[in-house]
Amino acid sequence: MKWSELSIHTTNEAVEPISHILHEAGASGVVIEDPFELTKEREDQFGEIYQLNPDDYPEEGVIVKAYLPVNSFLGETVDAIKESVNSLIVHNIDIGLNKVTISEVNEEEWATAWKKYYHPVKISEKFTIVPTWEIYTPVSSDELIIELDPGMAFGTGTHPTTVMCIQALEKSVRPGDRVIDVGTGSGVLSIAAAMLGAEDVRAFDLDEIAVTSARLNIKLNKVNDKVTTSQNNLLDGVEENSADVIVANILAEVILRFTDDVARVVKPGGSFIASGIIQQKKDMVKEALISSGFEITETILMEDWVAIIAKRV
């Protein structure tokens, strides 16, 4: 089978929404080429560091690549993707150069092209993300391993917004907690919550593809006895005071729309972890949370991204 590699030259701010657009269009996986990775300092004790080729990265901005099957609908699919990306401007998202290029690759080249980017990565005190095709030996007895297949949905869980969420979950989840993951994507946050001792985790996503992918990852990590996944629009229809912790790794614009709903669903004294927020919109989200009855307990910063831990007063 032949595949088309669709490449979009954009900004770091637009990576998450563009990745979502590409998955909705039928991409089996995305590759993010961020020049920041060339200079990012990492500890090499976990064996995840390998030599990156500067020629694979843009001098500025970020390139997001997706792989789509070459068929009679490809032209219409690409046009729809371009239109959706252009519409991000309406939401005040900087899409940068927004240069789109297309090239053709065969199936073997496609598999090699995106799998070479993913290796085991230690992302927090407790968690290591391991692609399913990699062999990894835990460094310590209390290390928690999350296995993910990036081809199923939304990357390997190593994006700063996801890393900050997992670090926040480590601080917030207690054994026996009830957790809701809004916009679950690959299911990685729900998996982490279950591994941290949550008794009941509900993973919601509006995207049917994400729901299917999350279920596969949840089963792969053997936490399907604690995690249920369903298609749902944010917290619509969820009962009051039914969660100890709610986590949402989505766009700031979406978080602003449902802070009152979060306050309704999370128990008094419970926590809301919000991520996917660019620095410029940090104060807007904080103000909305305070207005909805939350107290900001911690702000986590990583690269150009922000995660907020808030307590329901």
Rank of each mutant, 00 (worst) to 15 (best):
E37N: 04
E37W: 14
E37M: 06
T39W: 01
T39K: 03
K40Q: 07
K40M: 12
E41H: 13
E41D: 09
E48T: 05
E48M: 07
Y50I: 13
Q51H: 08
Q51C: 05
L52E: 07
N53I: 04
P54W: 12
D55W: 10
D55G: 06
D56A: 10
Y57I: 01
P58W: 04
E59Q: 15
E60C: 07
I63P: 00
I63G: 00
A66C: 06
A66Q: 03
L68N: 03
P69F: 00
V70G: 03
V70A: 00
N71P: 04
N71C: 06
S72W: 06
S72Q: 07
L74M: 09
L74T: 11
E76F: 01
T77N: 09
V78G: 03
D79P: 04
D79T: 15
A80V: 10
A80F: 03
A80C: 09
I81V: 11
I81R: 07
E83Q: 14
E83I: 08
S84R: 15
S84H: 12
I89E: 09
I89C: 00
V90T: 11
N92L: 05
I93Q: 08
D94M: 10
I95P: 00
L97G: 00
V100K: 09
S103V: 14
V105C: 07
V105K: 13
V105R: 14
N106M: 09
N106P: 10
N106K: 05
E108G: 00
E109S: 15
T112I: 07
A113D: 15
W114G: 02
W114Y: 15
K115L: 10
K115M: 12
K115E: 15
K115G: 07
Y117F: 14
P120T: 06
K122T: 03
S124V: 09
S124P: 14
S124T: 10
S124E: 07
E125Y: 12
E125R: 15
K126T: 04
I129N: 01
I129C: 04
I129W: 01
T132S: 12
T132K: 13
W133H: 08
Y136C: 07
Y136I: 02
S140V: 07
S140E: 04
S140Q: 08
S140F: 01
S141V: 03
L144H: 05
L144N: 06
L144T: 06
I145D: 05
E147N: 14
M152Q: 12
A153L: 03
F154T: 06
G155R: 04
G157P: 01
